[in-house]
Design a binder for these strands. Structure first.
Lengths: 164, 164
DNA sequence: TATATAGCCGAGCGTTCTGGTCGGGTATTT
DNA sequence: AAATACCCGACCAGAACGCTCGGCTATATA
């Protein structure tokens, strides 16, 4: 079992997508700025997310990524799976051949743990997270900051207009 | 968060100790044979387990390791912690400074998951595992096999006696 | 007292993964 | 035509895992 920045980045990026869904396709550059994740690394993650059918892409200017399904139908476990971070805690992948072809002493403990974790992450959808007050607060802060950094097109236009 | 063979080996070895507690100190060589774990690797793991106060050692012939406390007072979470595999799922270690000094979007999700896992592994002691029917079955099988392989001193003596 | 046992300890090593960069594509809009 | 933004493969440093090896020290037994 492994849960590192990779899986966390993937979930964070997907949540960012869910939070800004109404804006149409979201570019990776936007996500990169808001969530402070390397753009190239995001590309790699989204390659997998697309292959797993969790997002769809739109190429060209104004393009980006969209959730392939409503946020309520995408759970955290799926996202982590998609970027190849198994949540399985057994060494044998549930095959019970952990110790020379037979079940190891602690086999049942790891399968129990796996079920526990999987159950938890399977029960949380992107929509659930979007609904959380804490998440909305952080999102508001991030949107404000990126707007201040000149990420917001309308604002850019207004500034340029003011300069002329 | 990471849970690999390292943590699994540690728990397995500790359980082996708990299962054979009545025999007195158990040598790593015995555990190595029964659980098919490299002896040198076991030494490294037990170095940490001893530093964490989970086991005590007896040097010299007939020596080995003993649980430092009754099995009922040693939980799985402690063992995994001892070999330095954190069960914490956050990147910031619960400090909420995951994203440029501030809380990241998914912070609460990872803290919730950490609590979930920690609660589960904290609630299971070595004594709990020893009591499980599945574990006793596997242990019986392992003891039988290692005896057949010549691990059992009385049997060895009997065989040698028979040859003369 | 010599020898064997078994815990201790540090150095090193191949492999895998992470997290990331770079350079170059290609589709699409303006 | 140019700019945008997805796409893709190669490459890289660093860290951790799982493991080996060699040598040490304490202790029990012959």
């Amino acid at each position: 079992m492994r849960l590192t920045t990779k899986g966390r980045y993937a979930v964070t990026a997907m949540l960012d997508l869910a939070l800004h869904a109404e804006r149409g396709p979201i570019s990776l550059a936007d996500i990169s700025k808001r969530q402070e994740i390397s753009l190239s690394y995001l590309e790699q993650l989204f390659s997998r997310l697309r292959q797993s059918g969790l997002v769809s892409s739109v190429r060209g200017p104004g393009g980006g990524y969209r959730l392939a399904r409503p946020g309520a139908e995408i759970c955290v476990a799926e996202i982590i799976d998609a970027v190849n971070e198994s949540v399985d805690a057994t060494s044998c992948g549930g095959n019970s051949d952990c110790s020379a072809g037979e079940q190891c002493l602690t086999h049942y403990l790891w399968t129990d743990l796996s079920h526990q974790i999987h159950g938890f992450l399977n029960g949380i959808s992107l929509a659930d997270m979007v609904a959380r007050a804490e998440v909305q607060e952080v999102a508001r802060r991030q949107d404000g900051r990126s707007a201040a950094l000149g990420d917001n097109i309308e604002q850019k236009v207004a500034i340029i207009g003011g300069l002329q």
